[in-house]
Design a protein around this nucleic acid. Structure first.
Lengths: 233, 233
DNA sequence: CTCCCTAAATAAACACTGTTAGGTAACTGA
DNA sequence: TCAGTTACCTAACAGTGTTTATTTAGGGAG
């Protein structure tokens, strides 16, 4: 409410353009996602997102309740693509053991290809994860409205179970086997992400070796495929 | 410089007490550490620490350059105790395989007993870790001033190497073996910490199973101790 | 015992964060 | 052309880490 009326030359009031809610939502999520990848999970502020989109920070709250709500959408996307990757991995292979191995590779590669999102999903305290559903995949409530996250875990769980059904595991508790497999995968992915300064040996060999580890642990000693699954090591 | 002089009854000017730098530093670190455990890594602000200690937030900067500097001290403590735990584990067992197994249990138990500090050390982006030295344990600079962090990794590295020297591993690259072992341990610890809502099977069994996994992966198939090391599974 | 000087503590401000309230104006349908 | 809806903006809130200038406590020297 200062002196200037509506001259237009004074660069104080950038005339607004109005977009459809869907379009703006898309812009906001896209901006947030690319800021993630570029500057890391922590350095994503509402102001930065807004500036990237070309609006004010407050305008975001027209489309998202929270900052967390934006993250939630990103997480959903992450899980949707993870689920897709796991399902194609499974579709491309019928043999249970090789199928499990492929799924695990898919998980690892997906995580390593989206380090900042992986960090957000699996390493931040808050985390949208609980609400994304992965954290409680075996409860009834979560099963009623299965999220992409819980479905992703289910794919792995089923792959493990199929191996057990084929009579090849040395232990019957498939829950335990699936958890161990998940932990092994998460171990490499998260360490490679957080400690990228560490003088790791070749990344590809680490992944292969870790998968070997899991399979030697899963299978009973007389399984005929043990050698075949243990690649070069 | 308001009206009140030095009545003493008015609760406005809490007369300051002056402490020795060492004592204050200790108070600050202790407050920060207990706030960690109580309210989680993120909810530790300078104001909260200061209030806990009974001083102003700015007073902290007399003793620490940064917030990160406080965390750094906490991390050092975490690594110092980890190193101690690893060394007693090694001292109590001479047989290389059992020794490695004990060290790994020590790592896991230490992490699970200090979840928030583990989170800070191994899962936060910043992280003091790089400066704590673990991130670059094999470079010359870091070797010249070995931190407790890099020493901790070295203990595990040496334990793995001893197993290899005993001719029991199925692979010669001990760096790779150590990395895989670390990843397997970190996998369970970090997942158990971040996903405490997840309906895990019994924690003790998970740990045991994961250790089995690593050992079956490390040892060559004809190793006479394979069965002995694979406990109940 | 007094003085004084170092430095531990303070108050006040900086720039930043997420979030909210209320006003303005752009588009939509009549 | 004229509402009505609502996307957007401005301004402010409380919180964050950090810096500056100022006060004052406490120990050493005279």
């Amino acid at each position: 409410m200062k002196t200037q009326g509506k001259q237009g030359a004074v660069p104080s009031k950038p005339r607004r353009k109005r977009l459809s809610p869907e379009e703006r939502r898309g812009q906001i999520v896209a901006a947030a996602r690319s800021l993630f990848a570029a500057e890391g999970t922590d350095n994503v502020s509402m102001r930065k997102i807004a500036k990237r989109v070309g609006i004010t920070q407050a305008a975001i709250y027209q489309h998202f309740e929270n900052k967390e709500a934006i993250f939630f959408v990103i997480i959903e996307g992450f899980f949707a693509e993870l689920l897709a990757a796991l399902e194609t991995a499974i579709a491309e292979e019928t043999e249970p053991l090789l199928r499990l191995r492929r799924s695990m590779r898919a998980y690892i590669e997906h995580g390593l290809s989206r380090p900042e999102e992986y960090r957000l999903v699996f390493m931040t305290p808050m985390s949208g994860l609980a609400r994304a559903g992965l954290a409680v995949p075996r409860t009834d409530e979560a099963r009623n409205t299965p999220s992409k996250g819980s479905l992703s875990f289910d794919v792995l769980d089923r792959a493990v179970r199929d191996v057990a059904l084929a009579g090849r595991t040395r232990y019957a508790d498939t829950d335990l086997l699936a958890e161990a497999a998940w932990a092994a995968m998460h171990g490499i992915v998260s360490l490679l992400i957080t400690h990228d300064q560490f003088p790791w040996t070749d990344r590809e060999r680490i992944v292969e070796f870790q998968l070997d580890l899991v399979f030697r642990g899963l299978l009973h000693d007389k399984c005929p495929m043990r050698q075949a699954l243990a690649g070069t090591f």
